[in-house]
Structures are given as structure tokens and as C-alpha cells.
């Protein structure tokens, strides 16, 4: 944490570093960041709640993000979302979770010519099907 003291503009980076380490940002960490960066807890809380990447709970062991933006819509992301609901029993909404896996929508993964796209942990999928998601979950890289 000390690397962020006296460094201009470090609140976001401090929160990102905490999440990198723990997988989420524990509530008490907000006080730590406030102290180290010499700003109020309210300010830190404001930053924490603004960014959708930052989270207050531990993620499931597997995180699936399904692109629902325009280019993937054009390539059938609606059908993919429906198939995920039917076959995996998971809604692609908010932070839906079942056992080892959580699934969330995302706006664009930059794989717009090979949609629908999904990110399974750190592995990008193109022309995504439920079968491909299943395979990636079995072998998360």
C-alpha cells in the first residue's frame, strides 16, 4: 500500500491492487485506502462504487462474461443468453451465480467480427456456444 502514498491519483489504483490481491475489496480496505491516500472514506467509497469492475464480494471460482452489445446482438447473443439460461440454468443478468460459476453481461470484448463473444475467466471465446463455454470451464486458462 505504501507505494500509493504521496502518489497523485492513486485511489483507483490502490483499490485495483487490493482487488488483484484478494479478489474483491473488503469493506475495511476502504479505510486503509483513505488513510494511505489521505482522502476521506466517502471519497474512496465514491470511487469504489463508480467502477463496475470493483466488487465487494469474493467472485465465484469461475467468472463468465457474455457480451450483449450491438455487434454481438447482430451475431445472435440473444440466442446465446437464452441457451445459457436453458442449459446452464443461469441468467445473464446482474451477478447471477450458481455453485462454482458466476455469469455477468459485458458491453464489448473487442471480438466484434467473431461474435457472440464471451470471456471465461481470462479466456476469450468467439462464435460462442454453450458447448464452448462448458469446455472452457472444464479447462480454465
Amino acid at each position: 500500500m505504501s507505494q500509493f502514498a504521496d502518489s497523485e491519483g492513486s485511489v483507483l489504483r490502490a483499490l485495483q491492487a487490493i482487488q488483484e490481491t484478494f479478489g474483491y475489496v473488503p469493506d475495511e480496505a476502504l479505510d486503509t485506502v483513505a488513510e494511505v491516500c489521505n482522502v476521506s472514506r466517502a471519497e474512496v467509497y465514491g470511487v469504489f462504487t463508480y467502477y463496475s469492475d470493483l466488487r465487494s464480494t469474493l467472485p465465484a471460482p469461475n467468472v463468465v462474461r457474455v457480451c450483449i452489445a450491438e455487434a454481438c446482438q447482430a451475431s445472435g447473443s440473444d440466442s446465446l443468453v437464452a441457451a445459457i439460461r436453458a442449459e446452464l440454468g443461469l441468467d445473464v443478468h446482474a451477478k447471477s451465480r450458481s455453485g462454482e460459476t458466476e455469469i455477468a453481461p459485458v458491453f464489448c470484448l473487442g471480438n466484434c467480427a467473431l461474435g457472440p463473444a464471451a470471456l471465461v475467466n481470462d479466456r476469450l471465446l468467439g462464435r460462442t456456444t454453450v458447448a464452448k463455454i462448458r469446455a472452457a470451464l472444464g479447462d480454465p486458462r
Binding site: 485495483q16 491516500c37 470511487v47
Partner: peptide, 18 residues
Amino acid sequence: AGSYVCGEETAMLESLEG
């Protein structure tokens, strides 16, 4: 950190300022 608006230049600067 997952914010579309941060692609707007002034929002990006705010984000770079933490």
C-alpha cells in the same frame, strides 16, 4: 475499471487521477 464513459477524454483524465 469497467466504465464506458471513461473513453470520453475528460472522464478518462478523472479516472487517471484516481
